[in-house]
Write a protein that binds this DNA or RNA. Structure first.
Lengths: 367, 367
DNA sequence: CTGAAAGCGCTTACAG
DNA sequence: CTGAAAGCGCTTACAG
């Protein structure tokens, strides 16, 4: 058992006394601003060095009304996508002279106790929550990562949105090129969700699946749907993005079970995101369904974890690190009063893996 | 394109003026400290509310010389173990009225620009780096998560160590109970590593494997070893824990390849950590080696990702969230000048999964 | 080139 | 119960 020691911190006053000058001079010398006689400056710097002087960032911030710190607020740390996104945020922040922190369980009320210049919000659902909790009068610069959720906000927040509508089109096009036409979509939403992935899938597949379209939709219906339509206008988004971290992996397991229960004859399934796909794959393994031999899979995200499954996951990605970079850039421009894009759209790109079977090659021998 | 708007922030002065009292009174009213006439207090509170007053945490911190913020410094965010550990840190911090942030790429030099009361270091290697970079004169309260690396430090830092020596004993005992005696150990270190897991494995298996012991050690030898022995005394630890995030997954792939190349007749492999095991499993899948039918696996960590492989991973764990809690508790006690344990040891526990085969049941039919 | 002074927004011992 | 005052550690316009 020990006690923390209290060391009196060295301040500019101490340096000034030792150097026989005023604090102003010390400040100018240390900050390299304004006139200071060369010898004086050197003496000050040397004394500072000797004393092991460390500037107090809090005092500086109080003066300058900025902290050079930003926060990535993300509850869903178990989702590998966001880890990569955070790396992008950090990289860009560093470039701009900022530090980027991560926090997962901050109560929005406590946000105001936090010493940051701005905040990056994980998704649209969290942006809604942010606005509700912090209200109108707390005007912290903010920016939100968008994933195609259409949801009403009291006040809008600058948005960096991954274009998942286009992403879905790319995925379907790729599957069709590989001979798939019975393509299911699996997520944790309902058939009527305005979510971009869902809408795009419906629009693209309607001509092919026609009246059977809804059979190929694997998601949450009925009960959940009811909750969505009634009462709290945000209920669904809270359920999806909300208070607690989501477990897409478990949703994926359920999705796989539902797929098998229905005996769906789809040759391919589009998965809401990577974690969802990992859940599906695990359940398929358990049930001895082979990917891609029995069914092909594509997921959205392209997080680094896609390399961790076998075969490697075929994904649609926006490159999460890139989205993170753009988020940080947008936020910092906003903080610094520079012009910035209120809405930025990031396009999708296909990452080929081994989870899609080319049906045209079915009868040929494998290499 | 838009410009960030500058809103003049409301201060206690504004409230004081409107309420017709002094700032002192406002402060006492808001902080609920000292005497304030009841009606005055109510008036102040109401005006604060109306004005949408938000206290300035920076000014408060400057006064009080504390920020109520702590940092978990962790480079290895792709390692699921640390995510869980961070959740534990957050939970405990919250309980104590602190906020816990995460940062992965902070330069230690920039640490002093950061507004935190203390720091939690990811592992022993990072503690060494911390001490080297920040030097002796920057005395930020700190605590380090320990994993059985024995390494020399200039100055010691309070330690919360997972007892991996005991963990290894438990793992081996469990394997033996299941009929295993040819048990390999796979990690990214050398046979001579003083790492607790390695030493424990050597001590436990020596009597069984005898002269063949080293054959069952899968790791990095020769070239790496040389580097370790020569020059920089920290070279090895830097390699292991150091500047850049590690890729245990890839190490696991290499380990699996080495295992197969040697044609090792081990019936079980102990894996350095979960991520390493995931890499091994993937390579085994690729090579059509079945776990646990062809070889059993146990890994150290027990992160949530262990549920994501099939069959579920059998692990030795310290329960990362628990270690995180103890780390935060130790740090905060230190910050607040309360007594704390300079060294805390956390014991291991087995999490049964499906990756260990009971060799005694080999010939019986499976359920 | 230098230093006294006011100020960032808050706290708190002290005199009234 | 209240307010003027000093102070946390730094910055910066201003007078010298």
């Amino acid at each position: 058992m020990e006690k923390a020691q209290i060391t009196k911190r060295v301040t500019r006053k101490h340096i000034a006394d030792l150097a026989g000058v005023s604090v102003s001079v010390v400040s100018r010398a240390l900050n390299n601003s304004g006139y200071v006689k060369k010898e004086v400056k050197e003496r000050v710097l040397q004394i500072a060095e000797e004393l092991g002087y460390i500037p107090n960032p809090i005092a500086m911030s109080l003066q300058q009304k900025r902290t050079k710190q930003i926060l990535f607020y993300c509850k869903d740390l178990h989702n590998a996508f966001y880890i990569d996104l955070y790396f992008g945020v950090m990289r860009e922040a560093k470039k701009r002279g900022y530090m980027a922190f991560l926090n997962a369980n901050l109560n929005f009320n406590r946000l105001r106790d936090t010493m940051i210049d701005g905040i990056i919000l994980q998704n649209e659902g969290l942006a809604v929550e942010f606005l509700e909790t912090c209200g109108m009068n707390y005007r912290l610069p903010a920016v939100v990562a968008g994933f195609g959720s259409r949801l009403p906000m009291e006040r809008s927040i600058p948005l960096v949105e991954w274009d998942l509508y286009q992403g879905m089109e790319i995925a379907i096009e790729y599957l069709m090129k590989n001979g798939h036409t019975r393509i299911a979509y699996a997520h944790n939403g309902s058939f009527g969700d305005p979510d971009a992935r869902n809408v795009a899938w419906i629009n693209c597949m309607q001509p092919y699946l026609k009246k059977k379209l809804q059979d190929y939709h694997l998601g949450i219906e009925q009960n959940e749907k009811k909750r969505y339509q009634a009462g709290d206008r945000y209920a669904n988004f809270k359920a999806v993005c909300g208070e607690n971290e989501e477990d897409f992996f478990k949703e994926g397991i359920s999705g796989a079970k539902e797929f098998l229960r229905r005996g769906l004859n789809a040759t391919a399934i589009l998965c809401f995101n990577d974690e969802y796909a990992f859940g599906m794959i695990q359940e398929f393994q358990r049930q001895k369904i082979r990917v891609p031999d029995d069914v092909s899979l594509i997921s959205f995200d392209g997080s680094y974890r896609r390399n961790y499954v076998f075969p490697e996951m075929t994904c649609i990605t926006c490159e999460p690190e890139y989205q993170g970079e753009v988020l940080a850039r947008t936020l910092i421009d906003q903080i610094e009063g520079k012009p910035f894009h209120y809405i930025t759209r990031i396009s999708s790109k296909l990452l080929e893996g081994g989870t899609v079977k080319n049906l045209y090659l079915t009868d040929r021998p494998k290499v």
